[in-house]
């Protein structure tokens, strides 16, 4: 039995279920809410602050992705404070990051009315980490959403290769103590790549094709299959270039009951035998 109660969203009564987040309730009420760091299968990082809402009785705005609903909550998602805070978050990110591989972020920034020119200053200049054959890390694109850290850690993989290092503007994702990925504890499952929202983490093949101007999603078919490596039964989506008949990427559906979108190194990267 689900305990259901009423909350107020922008003055209108809405149903909320005990244990769910404010964001869950907002989505059910079809209130458009920008989000960047939150992910359905990961612990809310409440780090990006794009989803903040005004909660009556709370001095600061609250992150709707993390805060649980309580009976009688009065929320505003359309107040000037909320809209300016959200716009500010996107304007700050645009002033820092390379967003060329983050179309979803750019779209949400536009919807929030973000002005690219409002804040200027030092941008990220961290260089490309290209130290292995499976995926590359471009931390100029990283918005520090913590998704990769959580996927690598207790939420999914329990490998703990990735962590946050440094402080303030210098904070960034690091493998081990700043090691290269092959030297770190990384097992190359690629689950961090699967959850990265900005293209900061990208499969090597996709990165290479994009760099060469040859990445063209209109040419790719998605072929569903079941991974043949073991008996778990992970569902795979093979992204196949229909002209060359080559696999360009392997993913798994986020709503699949077994994988929830997560795979191991073999399922995600062990496909070259098909082409042999």
């Amino acid at each position: 039995m689900q305990d259901t109660f009423a909350i107020l969203i922008d003055g209108k009564e809405a149903a909320a279920h005990a244990g769910e987040t404010i964001l869950d309730a907002l989505r059910r009420a079809q209130v458009d809410t920008p989000t960047l760091c939150t992910h359905e299968h990961l612990t809310p990082a409440k780090a990006c602050r794009a989803c903040v809402v005004e909660l009556k009785g709370s001095r600061a705005l609250v992150a709707s992705c993390e805060r649980k609903v309580e009976p009688g909550m009065e929320l505003r998602t359309d107040s000037r404070r909320v809209l300016e805070a959200r716009r500010g978050v996107f304007e700050l990110l645009l002033s820092q990051n390379d967003v060329s591989a983050a179309p979803a972020l750019v779209l949400q920034a536009e919807r929030a009315g973000a002005d690219r020119e409002r804040y200027r200053g030092q941008r990220y200049d961290r260089g490309l980490h290209d130290d292995n054959e499976l995926y590359v890390r471009d931390y100029d694109k990283c918005i520090l959403c913590y998704r990769c850290v959580e996927a690598c850690g207790p939420d999914v993989q329990n490998t703990f290769a990735l962590t946050v290092a440094g402080r303030g503007f210098s904070a960034g994702i690091a493998a081990g103590y700043g090691e290269s990925l092959p030297d770190s504890a990384c097992v190359f499952c690629g689950n961090c790549v699967a959850v990265c929202p900005t293209g900061a983490l990208m499969d090597k093949r996709e990165h290479t094709l994009r760099a060469e101007g040859r990445w063209d999603e209109s040419r790719y078919d998605v072929v569903q299959t079941t991974c043949s490596y073991c008996g778990v039964g992970c569902q795979l989506e093979l992204h196949v270039d229909r002209r060359s008949n080559q696999i360009v990427k392997v993913t798994s559906p986020g709503d699949h009951s077994i994988t929830q979108g997560f795979l191991c190194v073999k399922g995600r990267y062990g496909y070259s035998f098909v082409e042999a």
Partner: peptide, 22 residues
């Protein structure tokens, strides 16, 4: 503040930096 921000959230991580620059 820019030096002491932990870097966790966007408004503080980037905001303290931009504030200092301005």
């Amino acid at each position: 503040f820019a030096h002491e921000s932990c870097g966790q959230c966007v408004p503080c991580r980037i905001g303290t930096r931009r504030q200092h620059e301005m």
